[in-house]
Amino acid sequence: MLSLFAFDLRETFDSVPWTVYFWIFFAFQYFVYGQLVSRLVVSLNDYYFYYGTGILIIMTFNVSTWAGRRFVEGAHEGRLKYLLSLPFTRGELFLEQVLLGLAVNLIRIGPPLVLILWLAKMPPIMFVTSVLVLLAMSFGIMGIMISLSFIAFKSFDIFSAIVASTSAILIRFSTILYPLAFLPSAYGTVARFNPLTYGSDLLRNALNFDTSSLLDPGLSAFVVAAVGISTMTLGMALVPRALEGVKSS
């Protein structure tokens, strides 16, 4: 399993342009878009820092959805058949996919996180707590995406469409880009049912952001942990069964 993990990790970072693009995307969003938008926002103190942490969450979300998509792509391209012939259990295969997602996330998010914390003059311990929160969120999102993969085994196109539209909706109807207090009441109600809202506020709590605009950290931590554990359990229960019916395209 560890050999497969090392192989997958190497393969993922073989594509230098994507890895570099990921960091360039962050730099552009943070140093250009974030700077300009934060000059327009007058109702919230230190929106620039708020926006920076939001970008980190969006990046975590993107890496986690990539991990889910990669898994189902492998199934449709016939790679999964080969993996199932290897001498390890389906549970171990599932675990390897999750570990890969977490490792890729850590490698891609680490440098931007360090930069944001350094610019905000945060102590190094903040890095550890932030990484823990981001990885816990990543765990939950991957759980959702891998659980959704049973749809992909019927139609990859429909799976991609669902993931794409769900991603846009989940990110917008959350506190990733703006605090709950500033959402119109109808949107605020939707945001309260969105796990990303709790993850975002938990991260900002961990970074000592103005807590008056954030949800209770205890509740946020509970929701993030509950979503992570429940979706992963669901994924572990669903995926091994779904694997039986996969046809290569």
Binding site: V42, S43, Y47, A168, R172, Y178, F182, Y187
Partner: peptide, 16 residues
């Protein structure tokens, strides 16, 4: 659609 009807509307409340 979400940019228009969510981001646009929420930012509207954050700007002058």
């Amino acid at each position: 659609i979400t940019d228009m009807l969510v981001v646009g509307l929420v930012y509207n409340g954050l700007m002058q």
